[in-house]
Design a protein around this nucleic acid. Structure first.
Length: 433
RNA sequence: GGGAAGGUUCCAGAGCGGUCAAAUGGGACGGACUGUAAAUCCGUUGCUUCGGCUUCGCAGGUUCGAAUCCUGCCCCUCCCA
C-alpha cells in the first residue's frame, strides 16, 4: 500500500482549493490510502482551463499518496447537469460524446500516473456501467432510496422551480445518476471520496446519501471554490473564447500569454491553485512581486509552470521566444537570426498571407502591402493603412516604419517572409512566393 | 382602423436646401506614458489611381444644387380604438 505522504486537506486549504468538506473526510484521508474521484462532463473534445482545477485536485490526491479516478461522464453527459444553469441544456448526440470522451481521456493521461503501484490513476467512463442498466432496474435500485422531497431540496433544482423556468424530468434525474456513479465506484473500486467544484456539492452529497442508505457505508465529499477573477468577469475566457488545453484549439503561445496576462491579485491566487510550487517559495514570490509588481514575477512563473505542465518544455521555450520577439524592443536582429522552422513556430498563431514576388515588386507604397498584400487582414482599405502609417503605428520586421515608400532593398526574413505589424499586438506574416 | 413622432456613417445622437463625408459623445484602432496593466493625454475612425467617387430606410420627383423639400413604398416607436 502506498504511503500517505502529506496531509492533503491541509495542503488544499492553504492553496485556497477547499470550499466545503464533509466532516470526517480529513481523518479518512490521513488514516489510509483513499480512492477518490472527480467527474468530467464531456461537453467538448478537449479540456479547457476551467477543468484544470479538477485535474490539479486529482494530481494533489495522487501526490499525497491516494488513488485518483477520473470519471468521464459518457452517460451523465447525455443527460445534462442542471446545476446553476439557467436553462435546460441541449442534449449532445452519441457521436460527439464519444469523440469528446476520447479527446478528454487523451489529455487526462498526461497529468496522472497510471503506473505507480497501488495508487495508480484510472480513467473510467460511466457509460460502461449505465449502458446495461435498464430503467426499471434504475428506478428500483437507485430511485427507491431517495425521496423526491430530498432531491427537490437541492439548490440546483429549487432555483429552477423558483424562477419558473422549470426543469425536465431528465435533468431532475441527473443528481441520482451522479449519485449512482459514486455508489457504483464505492462498491467496485472502494472509492470513498468525491471531489468537485462547489457547484457539485449537492450532487456529491446525493451520492454519499445513496451510499449510506443503500450500502450502509460512509463516503465523503469535498469541493473546491469556483475560480473567479478579481474584476468579476468569468475565468478562463479571452476575447476569442475559452482557453483550451488542445494545442490545435489554443496554441501553446496563446496559452502562455493567457497566464502571463493574469491580473496581480489573480496571479497570487492562481499560482497556488495551478502549480505545485511549495508554500515557502510562493510566499517569497509574492513578497518579491509586491516589491516590484511591474516585473511580474508571479505571472511569468505561473505561465511558465502551467505551460510546461500542459504542453512540455519545448513548447514553453517557443512560447517564451515568441513572446520576447512579439513584445520585446530592439529585436530586429533576433528576428532575423531565427531559422525558418522557429520563425514559423513563433508566428503560428499570427495571421498569414501570401503575395507573389511580382506583385511585391509592383508595389510602390507600403500601404499597398499592408492592405491588399495581407488580403486585407491587417487593413481593410488602403486609406486606413495610410492613416496608420502617418500616425506611426506600423512596424516592418519589428522596425518602426519611417516613410511611406516601399524600400527597394526591403530585407526578407529567410528570403521569403515579411513581418508586418500594426500597433503592439497585431501582426501579419506575409510570405513572398 | 384613427392620430403623433421617427428611420443619419460601428452605436447613441445632431443636422432640416448649398460652407456636409456630415457636429458631439461612446466604442474601436493607433501614438505617448506604463508592467504586453489601469488611469491619463494626443491622433485616426466611408472608398480612392488623391482628379474624384459612393453614402444619411427604399424607389421616384422638384431644384443649378437635397441627408435636408414633394410623392409612393417598407420598417419602427408612442397615443387612441
Amino acid at each position: 500500500m502506498a504511503d500517505i505522504k502529506t496531509n492533503l486537506i491541509e495542503e488544499l486549504q492553504w492553496r485556497g482549493m477547499l470550499h466545503d468538506i464533509m466532516p470526517g473526510t480529513e481523518d479518512q484521508l490521513n488514516k489510509e490510502m483513499t480512492t477518490a474521484y472527480v467527474g468530467f462532463d464531456p461537453t467538448a473534445d478537449s479540456l479547457h482551463i476551467g477543468h484544470m482545477v479538477s485535474v490539479m485536485l486529482l494530481r494533489h490526491l495522487q501526490k499525497a499518496g491516494h488513488k485518483p479516478l477520473a470519471i468521464v461522464g459518457g452517460a451523465t453527459g447525455m443527460i445534462g447537469d442542471p446545476s446553476f444553469k439557467a436553462a435546460e441544456r441541449q442534449l449532445l448526440d452519441d457521436d460527439s460524446i464519444q469523440k469528446n470522451i476520447a479527446g478528454m481521456k487523451g489529455q487526462l493521461e498526461k497529468f496522472l500516473d497510471f503506473d505507480c503501484g497501488d495508487n495508480s490513476a484510472e480513467i473510467l467512463n460511466n457509460y460502461d456501467w449505465f449502458k446495461e442498466f435498464s430503467f426499471i432496474d434504475f428506478a428500483r435500485e437507485a430511485g427507491k432510496h431517495l425521496t423526491v422531497n430530498y432531491m427537490m431540496s437541492k439548490e440546483s433544482v429549487k432555483k429552477r422551480l423558483a424562477d419558473g423556468s422549470g426543469i425536465s424530468f431528465t435533468e431532475f434525474t441527473y443528481q441520482l445518476l451522479q449519485g449512482w456513479d459514486f455508489y457504483h465506484l464505492y462498491k467496485e473500486k472502494n472509492c470513498r471520496l468525491q471531489f468537485g467544484g462547489s457547484d457539485q456539492w449537492g450532487n456529491i452529497v446525493t451520492g454519499t446519501e445513496l451510499i449510506r442508505r443503500k450500502a450502509q457505508g460512509t463516503a465523503y465529499a469535498a469541493t473546491c471554490p469556483l475560480i473567479t477573477k478579481a474584476d468579476g468577469t468569468k475565468f478562463g475566457k479571452t476575447e476569442s473564447g475559452a482557453v483550451w488545453l488542445d494545442p490545435e484549439k489554443t496554441s501553446p503561445y496563446q496559452f502562455y500569454q493567457f497566464w502571463l496576462n493574469v491580473g496581480d491579485d489573480d496571479a497570487k491566487k492562481y499560482i497556488k491553485i495551478f502549480t505545485f510550487i511549495e508554500k515557502e517559495e510562493i510566499d517569497q514570490l509574492i513578497a518579491e512581486h509586491d516589491e516590484a509588481p511591474h516585473t511580474r514575477i508571479l505571472q511569468k512563473r505561473l505561465a511558465e509552470e502551467v505551460t510546461r505542465a500542459v504542453h512540455g518544455q519545448k513548447e514553453l521555450d517557443t512560447a517564451i521566444a515568441a513572446s520576447n520577439i512579439l513584445f520585446g524592443k530592439n529585436v530586429t536582429d533576433q528576428l532575423k537570426s531565427l531559422d525558418e522552422r522557429t520563425l514559423l513556430q513563433v508566428f503560428e498563431g499570427v495571421t498569414q498571407s501570401e503575395i507573389t514576388k511580382a506583385d511585391l515588386e509592383g508595389m510602390a507604397e507600403i500601404a499597398d502591402l499592408l492592405s491588399a498584400g495581407t488580403d486585407n487582414q491587417l487593413f481593410s482599405s488602403k486609406g486606413e493603412a495610410k492613416r496608420m502609417i502617418k500616425g506611426g503605428g506600423i512596424s516592418i520586421n519589428k522596425a518602426k516604419l519611417q516613410g511611406s515608400e516601399l524600400p527597394k532593398d526591403l530585407e526578407l526574413l529567410q528570403d521569403k517572409y515579411i513581418l508586418a505589424q500594426k500597433g503592439k499586438k497585431n501582426y501579419c506574416l506575409i510570405k513572398v512566393v
